[in-house]
Design a protein around this nucleic acid. Structure first.
Lengths: 214, 214
DNA sequence: CAGAATACTAAACAAACGTTCAATGGACGT
DNA sequence: ACGTCCATTGAACGTTTGTTTAGTATTCTG
């Protein structure tokens, strides 16, 4: 897929194409020959660069985690514990993702598979997210924006799971809602509803627009 | 795996073993020979009974959906829209699941894979669940237990996604919490936290136990 | 510019895959 | 008892899989 102006090395092209195909169908369903064809190289070259298919998979895994970690660094660097903060700009992991990634990025799909796979990488990633969620909840509590609840560990897990659900069920939600909840449009529908429940529960009346004369 | 007292037909045994293996690793990673070995039959017999591996997969799919639908029928039959009702016995789909299925049932795992797969069965199942969620929300609104929110479609989707998150992330949550949230013990930790947020948002003080003198 | 290292391809490899097929054995109706 | 059906097996089939190998370009290095 190397077009004019594409200065990636062949190795990077193979990695990126593998990432794209893995995200779509999972590493098991994708063959080395498919990857080689997508990158317009011979199957042998893939092995030459990555040792084996599993070596390629591991490198793609690491690459995705690196990109993700870099994005996380940007977010927490921007302004402390604004993650999961209803008042701040990015009100959820999913929203931060949607903002920092192109709409057609294979990364969300890949992370979805990674997160649900029974691997150490998945366990590590989730634990990382969980600790982030706990820290965010602690921040909210300190700021008086939330109560720790009876079981803070469960509350943080609850918030994280809800956040990730958007991610995992993205395609299904897009079908029933008619809007991709991870797109800009979808976020403007999803976020207020989510924040409303988090702010006052299911029974709370929706906040009236300031100019409403009724 | 046919032991004494096992009156299942060989056909049913193969189906059940396939279900178990599919749930664990996905249909693509499981070979006909593995299924045959688990059921203690020859690979040829599997094809003889189900036509092909894909035929077996389809039959397992349908079987799982049938069992699931039967369980759903029991639930909605018990007492109207008690699903998602914070006051009723079963406060969520996940809890209902946990109550009606043995702890080591492969069905949750299989449904997880099915729900995330890009198939018509997945779309149909999710749409079914979504409409159930909408009906449940309508019931709550009619009973004065919830507000429809600004965008009822999104609110129902939000509640459903949160519910399913428990399902999809079960293993990961078990790791960080030390308790399987779909077990009886896990539910007693998870449900109160979830209901507390749904009742009054994140800021609400946890309901004090009646006899608390503080 | 020579030589060494690296990038890359085409062809072949053994293993494993889903599937087919002929043969066997027992169960059942007649 | 006989013939028919169905369950079941073991061995084979062709295909596809990941990988290896030998050989050819290309690029780097001194």
């Amino acid at each position: 897929m190397r077009s004019i102006g594409d200065d990636r090395t062949t190795r990077a092209i193979i990695r990126d194409e593998a990432l794209r195909l893995f995200a779509a169908g999972g590493p098991e369903t994708v063959t080395l020959r498919q990857i080689a064809a997508a990158a317009r190289v011979s199957p042998g070259l893939v092995v030459h660069h990555f040792g084996s298919k599993d070596g390629l998979r591991k490198e793609v895994d690491q690459h995705v985690l690196d990109v993700f970690e870099a994005m996380l660094g940007e977010l927490t660097g921007e302004g402390g514990a604004e993650l999961l903060d209803p008042g701040a700009g990015a009100s959820s992991l999913s929203e931060a993702f949607a903002r920092h990634l192109p709409a057609d990025s294979p990364l969300p799909g890949y992370l979805r598979r990674l997160l649900l796979s029974d691997t150490d990488a998945a366990r590590l990633l989730f634990r990382r997210l969980y600790e982030l969620s706990r820290a965010a909840l602690d921040g909210l509590v300190a700021a008086g924006l939330a109560a720790p609840g009876r079981d803070p560990a469960v509350r943080a897990a609850f918030l994280l799971a809800n956040d990730l659900a958007l991610f995992l069920l993205r395609d299904r939600l897009t079908e029933v809602l008619g809007t991709d909840p991870l797109s800009t449009d979808g976020m403007t529908r999803w976020a207020p509803e989510m924040l409303s429940v988090y702010a006052g529960g299911l029974t709370a009346a929706p906040p009236q627009p300031p100019g409403d004369a009724r």
